[in-house]
Amino acid sequence: MNFHLWQPCNMRCGFCFARFKDVRAEVLPAGHLTANEALEVVSLLAEAGFKKITFAGGEPFLCPWLSDLLEAAHQLDMTTSVVTNGSLVTETASLTGLIDWLVVSIDSLSPQVLLELGRTTAGRPLPETTYRALCEDVTQAGIQLKINTVVTRVNRREDLSSFIIAAGPRRWKILQMLPIVGQNGGANNALSVTDDEFEEFVQRHEWVSQYGIDVVPENNDAMTGSYAMLDPAGRFFDNVNGCYTYSASILECGVTAALGQVTLVRSKYLARGGRYNWNNPSPPALAHRGTD
């Protein structure tokens, strides 16, 4: 389950498919539920049988009660994961025991490319040294590291192989930029790439799997209708029509009824490798850290 608990973000990525400005304008003016409501969402998901929860945004580390949600999820025997742009993660040791997986979004190591993408805070991109230090701190803290990379028009020719090998994530998810009407402009977004361009990026990097890194590419088709997702208002949503279709809030009608109001294709979820051994992960690929 991906719970986009926090609409606000401190970056403005041009490809972002989780802006939820429509949710904030039409449903949830603050861009998030209250702490108690968010805790109830976690409880309802656990009761419904979800075993793993990923907290996403926006930027979830902006949420003052994120640690409370993580602790509650653990108490309910759920594996926890957080997707972050990395700009606000400073004390990884304090996250031990709360976060099982930290997912860091790293799309480029080029300051110019990051500027073009809008992946900046106060107009400044994170330097490569910050990404390297964060990845090392995460694994040293005993947290499983995953890296997400979105392939776009401006980074499609970049080679991140050396960095990925040095960082040693357990999983590296390579995502084709997904156009969504109402979020990033849909098919008119100039950052989108063709299937062939995406495949070229994947083929350039697949060989890093020999270092014990699970390389997981997902093109637009693989990402469509294959994720269980909640918006900041606690509503399921799907992307099968090129835009978001929302259910009623699970706080109002429960998980089962709300899930029945959106499309989730189990076969596509399984085909993209959504079910893997997240409870008993193998050690991260530390042996190659620091290589060029």
Rank of each mutant, 00 (worst) to 15 (best):
Y131I: 07
Q140L: 14
R156T: 11
I164H: 01
R170C: 14
L134E: 12
R170Q: 15
E128L: 07
C135L: 09
I174C: 05
V150W: 02
T149Q: 03
A133N: 11
E136H: 12
K146H: 06
T139F: 02
T139M: 10
L160C: 02
G142P: 11
N155H: 02
G168M: 01
R170L: 13
Q144S: 15
L160D: 01
R157P: 11
V150K: 00
C135I: 03
F163A: 11
S162A: 10
T129W: 11
A133R: 00
R132Y: 14
R170M: 14
W172A: 01
S162G: 13
G168V: 04
V150L: 11
G142E: 06
V154Q: 11
V138K: 01
N155T: 01
I174P: 10
G168I: 02
L160H: 04
K173T: 08
S162W: 11
I165M: 03
I143L: 12
I165G: 02
P169C: 07
A166V: 08
V151K: 00
C135M: 08
E136S: 10
Q140S: 15
F163V: 02
A141S: 13
L145Q: 01
T139I: 04
Y131D: 03
T152A: 10
R156C: 09
I147H: 08
T129E: 15
R157I: 13
C135E: 03
Q140G: 07
A133P: 15
K146F: 12
I147T: 15
A167G: 14
T129Y: 13
T152Q: 00
Q140D: 15
R153S: 12
V151A: 08
T129S: 15
I174R: 01
A141E: 10
I164N: 02
S161T: 06
